[in-house]
């Protein structure tokens, strides 16, 4: 029963949400908005389940010997800090919650992303060893973009920024469009399979 009911629910929801696009009617639009609200609440509940799982996992790690217990304590401290500040003093501008976000969380996230600059350099070294005509084209496109988007590009020649604009707006967009068309067709086909009950991986191992 717990395999058939979800497949039926999925089919009904899928057919309605696809059909509402073609039906201009007040009650249908209202129901569409209601289902979108449901989706938002289900998404948040799924997120909370994941957060609870992270918390229980870290609590289990505390009981284990070794350095992992200290790291688990730090993670739990971070969660507790944000929860206490967020629910205790609110999330409005100037609140301690946003202070921690602005002064600790956001700079740390930016630093992690900037760390990739060093690894992207070594990846570029490996990737830019042009062995084939295709990789030579890749190198050339990357170098043109890098040169054209910094002031030195214009110093070399005023045509460099123009060439970059053309490369980005014509051949690069052509490939991007083709890939987007492929993604669109693929996602549509997958969505139809999900609604028809042919694709049931979202049910987990019990869905087979």
């Amino acid at each position: 029963m717990l395999r058939k009911i979800p497949v039926m629910v999925c089919a009904v929801c899928g057919v309605f949400m696809a059909a509402q696009y073609f039906i201009v009617s007040g009650p249908v639009s209202q129901l569409y908005g209601t289902v979108l609200d449901w989706m938002q609440i289900i998404f948040v509940c799924a997120l909370l389940v994941g957060i609870l799982h992270v918390i229980t996992r870290q609590i289990k790690n505390i009981s284990r010997p070794g350095p992992e217990r200290w790291y688990a304590m730090i993670a739990l401290f971070g969660i507790a800090l944000m929860v206490v500040l967020g629910f205790g003093w609110g999330i409005s501008r100037g609140s301690p919650f946003l202070w921690v976000f602005d002064h600790v969380q956001a700079p740390m996230q930016t630093t992690v992303f900037s760390l990739l600059a060093f690894y992207v350099a070594s990846a570029a070294y490996r990737g830019f060893r042009a062995r084939h005509a295709e990789s030579a084209v890749l190198v050339l496109a990357a170098l043109i973009v890098l040169l054209g988007r910094v002031p030195v590009g214009e110093i070399i020649s005023p045509y460099v920024p123009q060439t970059v604009s053309w490369v980005l707006n014509v051949p690069a967009v052509a490939a991007k469009r083709a890939i987007l068309i492929g993604i669109g067709l693929g996602m549509t086909a997958t969505a139809i399979k999900v609604i028809a009950g042919m694709e049931r991986t979202y049910l987990g191992s019990g869905g087979r």
Binding site: I5, V9, C13, G14, M17, V35, W38, C45, T188
Partner: peptide, 16 residues
């Protein structure tokens, strides 16, 4: 699986 089915089904329907 029931709320998951609502979410996945509605998401698939909207995406077509």
């Amino acid at each position: 699986r029931i709320p998951l089915a609502v979410y996945v089904g509605a998401g698939a329907g909207v995406s077509i």
